Computed example of a mutant assay.
Amino acid sequence: MNDDSLMYTENFTESGFVFTPFNVDEKAILFPSEKATFLEEVLLLNDFNFDKNESLVDEDSKENHIKIVEKAIDEINKSDLQKVVISRKESVQLSDFELLLVYQKLLKKYQNAFVYVWFHPNVGLWLGATPETLLQISDANFKTMSLAGTQVANKDSESTFTEQINVVWKSKELEEQQLVTDFIEKQLATISSNLKIDKTETIRAGNLLHLRTKVEGKLLEKADLKSLIRALHPTPAVCGLPRNMARDFIIKNENYNRSFYTGFLGELNLKKSNGAIQSSQLYVNLRCMEINHNKASIYVGGGITKDSIPKNEWKETVSKSETMKKVL
């Protein structure tokens, strides 16, 4: 950007880079392509020592998170709520923070993820390495995915999308994944054609394993990019089902503002090299952190269903925060 003014998009018809909050009622920030400078660089990544994190557990945060999860399970058992994603924010004090070094570590740790640094003087500094694609679209052809279910990998790895063998998934994770896939299929039914849903696979993201199901199709002429985005965001993988009920529960009970965590970001309506095809590549803002002065706020969460065990859900958020702590 050539100035520090804030610009927004509502219809997603512009070209540039978009950074969107979780709450769809809040505005999506746009860096317009006509006001941006594009640079390309090849980085040679060093071998980094990712030390084991020895940070202390915040007992108050643990107790609060477990209570909210218990409340979510109770709500699921007595209402139409099927799933809700409960998240929290964890603070880490920083010393000698080097932005480029942290970014290089993220690139090394998540070699196939969408790794980013985003900054605006009127908003702040965000970093992330997300394994989840919200949407890739070129002309009318699009690809998306459902990504849910989490378990800790047996061995640490620097790769992101590495298929695992002999992985056993419990019914809770399998059900959670199916809920997300069914939602996406239903949402896309009236605005797309030639919908193809691949077989569910196991992928690796840092020290975690996830279930992923790829989905692709073609947007109907009566639909547009905005309708496609609104159909998908927020997905049950970051919100829940039914979507409005889960969103209301999150806003009422999480006791903090997610801001851009579980929103989406990426390239919007950029023309390919031949100049004839417009494409957008948008990613769900997971595995992310906000840097403010000498503090990093790390955002983590997990899907809650009727089969969830509160203490295990807490442990999952701890596992999800480990990689970000290591790169710091």
Rank of each mutant, 00 (worst) to 15 (best):
T235S: 06
T202G: 09
L232P: 07
R212N: 05
I203R: 02
L209E: 12
A223F: 07
S193W: 10
K199E: 10
K218G: 06
A189K: 05
S193A: 00
K196C: 11
E201M: 15
R243M: 10
D248I: 14
K226P: 10
K214F: 13
T202N: 11
L195A: 03
L220M: 14
N257V: 13
C239S: 13
H233N: 13
G263R: 10
K222I: 11
G266T: 08
T202R: 13
L211H: 12
K196D: 06
S227W: 13
D224L: 05
G263Y: 13
L188T: 02
T235N: 09
E221F: 07
N255E: 12
N257R: 04
G240T: 07
I251L: 15
L232Q: 04
K214R: 15
R243H: 11
K222S: 15
L268A: 05
T235A: 06
N269K: 09
L228V: 03
N257E: 12
F260Y: 15
H233M: 02
K226N: 12
L195D: 06
A189H: 06
P236S: 12
G266S: 06
G263P: 09
F249N: 08
A231T: 10
A237G: 08
P242R: 02
R258E: 12
K196E: 08
G217A: 03
Y261S: 11
I250C: 12
L188F: 04
A237K: 02
K218V: 12
I191D: 01
L195S: 08
M245Q: 15
E267Q: 14
H233R: 13
L232R: 13
T200W: 14
K196V: 12
D224I: 07
L241F: 06
L241A: 07
T213A: 09
G240I: 02
N269M: 08
K226H: 12
S259I: 09
Q187G: 05
P242V: 01
S193H: 10
E216Q: 09
L209A: 03
E267L: 11
V238C: 11
M245T: 14
L219P: 05
R247G: 08
S259Q: 11
K218F: 00
L270F: 01
N207Y: 07
L208C: 08
P234D: 05
D248Y: 08
K218M: 13
L232H: 13
I251H: 06
S192Y: 12
D224Q: 03
N207C: 11
G206Q: 00
K222W: 07
A237H: 11
T262K: 02
T190P: 11
T262C: 07
E201T: 14
I203G: 10
